[in-house]
Design a protein around this nucleic acid. Structure first.
Lengths: 206, 206
DNA sequence: GTCTATACAGCGATAGAC
DNA sequence: GTCTATCGCTGTATAGAC
């Protein structure tokens, strides 16, 4: 989920998605137009309609690609953090994905679309909910493992805790971004995760 | 901060604000037009411009009124929860304000505007940050009291904890609203507050 | 304070040439 | 695959009558 480089060599469709993605994450789906994308790429609006018939189609493609990249990033977190201490490291890795998005002065794509949810065409609405459902499933499983091995602690079900964490990270981004302060997000995330982490004495008995 | 009733007897300016407020909280500042307000009130767009010269002026008035009502609501929470156990009750009362907003199928006005922040005229941007600063000041003071009397517990400064709580509540709303599920928010809020609450044994020694 | 009428820019979208 | 040209509509905003 790192901020992708210029993507100069990608096909036109991919470059359109790159520009549109940034516009949605920075200005919202209702805050940009085909003209903005066309100007940025040096092509015309008509060319955009060749690749994406309507704004709704573009929006669906945007979420699909974002969700797919996010799933890859989660798989990378799984790979990077393995063995003992995996749950804690994976939880931290999950929060780090959000940090990277904010570092690019962006809001989470689906967090932004959640705000505009009522104005979105239904296929986009459905895709946004799927994104959160998938995140909840991955994180819930991590939290459950952490509770099982004693490294994490929380009340209620792992799904509920996952929902709480996802919402909290989205909200921390939402508020930190206007302040232009990544540290503000990181502090909030650290305090949040601290509340789920068992004390060293309990998790790593000397 | 309860969902205000029809406000049938209010002046036109107030009724415009009522309708615009709901539109912003449901669809976003970039998701509605003067025509939407005019249609809802049965007046013309030109009449709207008499009361609020431009959309930016309307937006500023919207935040000012919302922030003023929110401050009143916080004062009410102070009054309702007094004496022993006040910090915990005030913290719960703070979360309840958010619940009420969500019950009306709305997002927090300033949470919504935070998402659209980069597209807002600067006076609106400034007012949004002031709203969060004020909330942080009030909540930080509540948390500090709670730590002092032993009823609340958290790492770092009270201001940092306040920022974490505000962000988490905003994010819980942001994500719960698309699901149309107030219970989803309430569960997340309860889990969040549980992490700040000292165990009964510590706070209420039998 | 509200109206009719209108200006004018921007929007998403389409037709048809190249 | 991209262009020029244009459509129909909606956006915010204004002028001037009542």
């Amino acid at each position: 989920m790192a901020g992708r480089a210029a993507n100069r060599d990608a096909g036109t469709a991919a470059r359109i998605l790159d520009v549109a993605e940034e516009l949605v994450q920075v200005r919202g789906f209702n805050g940009f137009s085909y003209a903005d994308i066309a100007a940025e790429l040096g092509i015309t609006k008509a060319a955009l309609h060749y690749h994406f018939a309507g704004k709704a189609d573009l929006g669906e493609a945007l979420i699909a690609r974002y969700a797919s990249r996010f799933a890859e990033a989660l798989a990378d977190v799984d790979t990077a953090a393995d063995g003992a201490g995996a749950p804690r490291a994976r939880l931290a890795g999950f929060a780090d994905l959000y940090t990277e998005v904010l570092r690019n002065r962006r809001m989470c794509l689906c967090g932004m679309l959640a705000a505009e949810y009522q104005t979105l065409p239904q296929p986009m609405q459905d895709a946004v909910l799927r994104f959160f459902d998938d995140s909840e499933a991955w994180l819930g499983s991590v939290l459950e493992s952490g509770r099982a091995d004693g490294s994490l602690s929380f009340a209620g079900s792992a799904s509920e805790a996952a929902r709480m964490v996802i919402g909290s990270l989205e909200g921390a981004m939402l508020v930190a971004r206007p302040y232009g302060d990544v540290g503000r997000f990181q502090t909030a995330a650290a305090n949040l995760l601290a509340g789920l982490t068992t004390s060293p004495a309990a998790s790593a008995p000397a």
